[in-house]
Nucleic acid binder design. Structure first.
Lengths: 136, 136
DNA sequence: GATCCATAGGATAAATTTATCCCTATACCA
DNA sequence: TGGTATAGGGATAAATTTATCCTATGGATC
């Protein structure tokens, strides 16, 4: 297994939160689970830009960090459902704040972000579904 | 210059916000500037884990994304001051939410984050200063 | 004259994260 | 038999981000 070589910075709340959300799809996954999209295959369909592999890895990390719980059904084909833990739910206001700020400033952000000369291409293929939040 | 090879995902607010905050020190820098720590040298002292180089790069990106403004004083030695733009200020509630959630769950998070077998070492050397928010 | 201050940024190495590809297992369906 | 669905995860390549090191500026200070 890969072993980190640089000390992880966990000084302030900001860095701790950043570490938990550190992963391309983690906020989107938490958001999806909060909206009752609980099976990996559903998440994969919801986030076409992601691969099964990455989602699996990031779900595992979220689970290891205590944000989500995994329930495996002894069935075939396999069935797995994830749900937010209590602390996972407590993180949702942060996710919501990020989501809302980004949406509220969408046109501006799309412009400045895409203006970056390093960026050649952008995609809007993911996170297309917005639903009501499942009752926690 | 480095050119991105993978399309940037900018579908939902979540990803847009993530892109703006994408950088090890960006949330901490925004937080610092909001607390009237406006000169790069001050930020460097505040964040001992960071190098001058990285802070410079990330400040430049924040500026390019319109979150901060740079004022250069024609002096020697050079003097530069950063300040939050209007949209930068509007992002502070998100930063605050991250900061507060992380602080509120500090002991739990320090445990689970450090439990990761990939992690060999952690550091708490940065973000040590908390002050009152400068009036926006 | 050497050194430090404060800032900017080039060049390159190293670290870390993502992407790709592949294989496992089993029930069901045509 | 062959393909589909569902989930897990190894191995490795590629992409991206950070870290290191170095050069430049001009005045002040030792």
């Amino acid at each position: 297994m890969y072993e980190r070589k640089t000390p992880l910075t966990i000084d302030c709340g900001l860095h701790l939160t950043k570490e938990v959300l550190n992963g391309k799809w983690k906020p989107a996954l938490l958001n999806a689970i909060s909206m009752d999209i609980k099976r990996p295959s559903e998440m994969l369909r919801l986030l076409p830009g992601a691969t099964r592999r990455v989602l699996g890895v990031q779900l595992k990390e979220l689970e290891a960090h205590g944000m989500i719980e995994k329930k495996t059904y002894p069935q075939l084909p396999p069935k797995v459902e994830y749900s937010l833990t209590e602390i996972g739910w407590s993180l949702m206001p942060v996710i919501d704040a990020m989501n809302q700020w980004g949406d509220a400033n969408r046109s501006f952000l799309e412009t400045v972000v895409a203006q970056d000369p390093r960026i050649v291409e952008t995609t809007k293929s993911a996170c297309l579904i917005y639903r009501n939040r499942k009752a926690g």
